[in-house]
Design a protein around this nucleic acid. Sequence first.
DNA 1: ATCATATATTTGTACATACAAATGTTGTCT
DNA 2: AGACAACATTTGTATGTACAAATATATGAT
Lengths: 149, 149
Amino acid sequence: MDVEKIIRTSSPLPLRQRSVIHLVLVSNRIGEVVSQALKPYGVSSQQFNVLRILRGQKDSPANLNTLSERMVSRMSNTTRLVDKLLEKGYASRTVCPSNRRKVEIRLTEEGAEALREMDRAVNDAEARLMEQYTPTQLEQLNALLDLIH
Amino acid sequence: MDVEKIIRTSSPLPLRQRSVIHLVLVSNRIGEVVSQALKPYGVSSQQFNVLRILRGQKDSPANLNTLSERMVSRMSNTTRLVDKLLEKGYASRTVCPSNRRKVEIRLTEEGAEALREMDRAVNDAEARLMEQYTPTQLEQLNALLDLIH
DNA sequence: ATCATATATTTGTACATACAAATGTTGTCT
DNA sequence: AGACAACATTTGTATGTACAAATATATGAT
């Protein structure tokens, strides 16, 4: 991305500062593209993320703790996010019988079905976004990102 | 960053998908580090961004349009963000006399002073975050990020 | 059994973000 | 001048995010 053009700065930025801004701009762009792809299904990218985690659980239910641990962007309020998924009929929530402090959250059949379509849409969008990259470049990018602590 | 560890997934992710998640994780981490550095000054990273743009204007004031154009993350509501800066005494807002539709937003002396300290704090935090990188690696990273459209 | 502590979730508050609609101002066309 | 479109900002609504406090349940020590 052309950082200087996007933030309309005339003077060139110091390399490290440019990298940091660049990373944020790219991530914002990813967010944009993904939310756009998900718009037809009425879910946010965080909600999509949760649906994928639920699917990854196979038949065992997830509790809120598990969900927030596994989410890409830690949600400080997973309760309300799950509320939205319930409203849409994509997930179910029951009190865990063995430990009544916990809740059991499951993907519904409707949720699983919608998720298959979302997956396709998001995957296509990501493919378009990243089509410039050769596999080698993707390896390099990942290796460089690994350096951040 | 160790993507698989952070999102606690056992199966390795496809390279492209891993890159996308990696970029988002890194950007989230940057956001965390920057907000932490700004916490003592009571401003968000977006507010900090606006303060820097105001300084870049030298003595000519900025209007809201200019601000949202130049911000790293486009704010859909720059009005309310500037409100916060007014409350803190870091910026001033007056109606533009030549075109009463516009507003003129300026950095106050107090804002300029606080900004100098914030700059130091943020710069230090970013330096710590990116200390692993050689200049060459930063170049490579920027070049790879340039590929995104 | 009771109390303190730890665990799991929910609720409250403030702020941030996205999008649409409303307001006020300016310039243009007739 | 009056009507109308374009411009710049503000306001409203819904949702998302961060952090702290509140609630409910379980566990362990005495």
